[in-house]
Amino acid sequence: MSLAFQVLVTGSAAGAVYGLVAIGHSLIYRLTGIVHFAFGDLVGLGVFATLLVAAGTEPVSQTSLGGGRFAAALVAGLVVCVVAGAGSYLYAVEPYVERRSTIGWVAATLAVAFAIKAAIGLVFVRSSYVFPDPLPFRRLGEDGFLSLGEAQIPIRAFFVLAVALALAAAASTTLDRTRFGRGLQAIAADADGARVVGVPATRLVAAAFGLAGGIAALAAVAAAPSGPFDVDTGVLLGLKGLVAALLVRFGSLWQAFGAGIGLGVAEAAIAGLPVFGVELGAEYREVLPLALVLCFVAMRPPRGALEEQE
C-alpha cells in the first residue's frame, strides 16, 4: 500500500513535468495545427541555460549554490527559452504554415530540435550532469526522504508537484482571464477570423510559443535536481509530453496536464508495481506506455489527424 503511495507521488511528480510539456504541445497544436518537434529541446535548452549561469559547465555537487545566483540563473534560463521558443515560431513554423507546406514545418522544427541539441552538446560535453539544488530538502525527513513502511518517498517530489500545479493554474488563468489569453482562444477557434477582427495573431502566437516553453522549462528546472540529466532529457520530455497530449487528442489544458500525470504514474507503476498481477519490471517503463498510446492513436486518431474526406 505504502509502495503504491510512493509510486503515486514520484510518478505524479515526474508526470507533472510531462503534463506541462503536454499543455505546451496542446496549445501549440490548437493555435497553429502543427506539432512542434523542437519543443522538448527548447525545454532542455532552458534547463541547460539555467545550469550554465548557475554553475557553469563543470561538474557541481548538489549543494554548492547560493540563492541569489540561482535566481539570476532562473531568469536567464527563462529568457533564453522564451526567446528561442518565439523565434522557432517566427522562423521555423510560420513561413511554412503560411505556405501550407507540411514537410516544411516538420523538417524545420526537427532541424531546430537537432540544432539546439548539438549546440548544447558543444558546450556541455559530459555524458550527464547533476543539477544543484538551492532548496534544503536534504535536511528534511531522513536525508530528504519520507519513510512510510517499506516505501521511501523523496520530499522533493511534493515540491515539484506543487510547482507544476501552480504553473498549470497560472497558465489556465492567463488563458481565461487576460486579454492575451482571450486573443489566443480566438486564434485557436478561428485564426483567419481573429486576424480579420484585428487580433495581432502572429505576435500573440509567437509569445504563446515562448511562454509555453518557458513554463515547461520552469517545471523541468524544479524537477532537475531530482536526478541526473543529459542532452536527451529535454527530447524525452518533449516526446512524453507529446504522447500525453496525443492521448487526450490535444484537449484542454487540464486534460493535457492530467494525461501527463497519468503517463508519469503509469511509468512509475510499471517499474515498481505488479500491474494486473504481472511484475513487468523497469525495462518496460518507458517503452510500454509509448507503444500503447501509439496503438490508441492509430485506432482513434485526434480531431484533424485524419485525412479529410470531400
Binding site: 506539432v35 507540411t102 516526446l239 496525443l246 509509448l290 492513436v297 492509430a298 484533424g304 489527424a305
Partner: peptide, 23 residues
C-alpha cells in the same frame, strides 16, 4: 496504423515509433 492520417500526423506517429524502437 498511419495510412489514414494526414502527413503531419504520419510524421508525429513515426517519430514516436522511432523513439520507441531506440528506447
Amino acid at each position: 496504423g498511419v495510412f489514414r492520417l494526414r502527413p503531419a500526423f504520419v510524421a508525429v506517429c513515426t517519430w514516436v515509433v522511432s523513439w520507441v524502437f531506440l528506447l
